[in-house]
Amino acid sequence: MTSSVPEMNASSERRKDIALRIAVPLVMVVGLVLIWHFGVVMSGVPPYILPSPGAVLSALIGDWSLLFPALVVTTKITLMSLALALIGGAGFAIFLVQSRWIEIAFYPIAVILQVTPIVAISPLILIYAPTTQVALLICAFLVAFFPILSNMVQGLKSVDHNLLNLFDLYGASRWQTLIYLKIPAAQPYFMTGLRIGGGLALIAAVVAEFAAGSAGASSGLAFRLLESQFRMNIPRLFAALLMLSALGVTIFAATSFISWLALHRWHESNLKREN
């Protein structure tokens, strides 16, 4: 056990490290925006080709009433499809590892769904789904589902054999082994699936909306992007893009944080090397 003095040093060191980790990328982004601004001003590029950061910002504020509802729609579809993919992927993985034959029977179907490009399936989904929103949800779900499934299957199968023996020795039921051993042991794999799935759900939600081309009040950011392109309203296009990036970053940060919360106390991936 470490004594308290080195611990204090370590914590101030850590704080410095965290501050640098935030400051360095921030300076980098600010620098790039400045270069962008002065580049546009000095070269005299018209705003319908490359708007300045100021023009993008004013489009963001000016078109807020148009863009924000679209952001809400896209966020909703992304989060709902991610939630369905988490439940479905983890649940299906638990079902798959119950027996070798179940896995042999069902896994190929999951693979076929995964390898077929979602843009190619989306016309069919659009035909069969009752509403466009449901179709978008299905598309995004299909894309986010697989990484969660395959990671979870891998995790459930990677349980330490000695621990399995131990559970056998103590007469643990199948259910107890699943709850107390397999699912906790699969956590790091599940978290990897969550991080990948979160990013993919957003990408799929946007791609599916491109393919669906939905319009009207329930349209998401992808539609606003296309619309801005048709209208040559490039500042608004940039503003919509900015929102999508912000959403992506937020999802990434949230899933990383959840993963950290679950694993930081015990898992190697979240521990600092001590030597």
Binding site: N162, L166, F167, Y180, L181, A185, H267
Partner: peptide, 22 residues
């Protein structure tokens, strides 16, 4: 066992609790 065979996600308490919990 030859290896301690502990569950890394559980505390020492949680590990010793296992046989009773089961």
């Amino acid at each position: 066992f030859q290896e301690p065979t502990l569950m890394p996600w559980q505390t020492v308490f949680g590990n010793v609790f296992l046989p009773l919990r089961l």
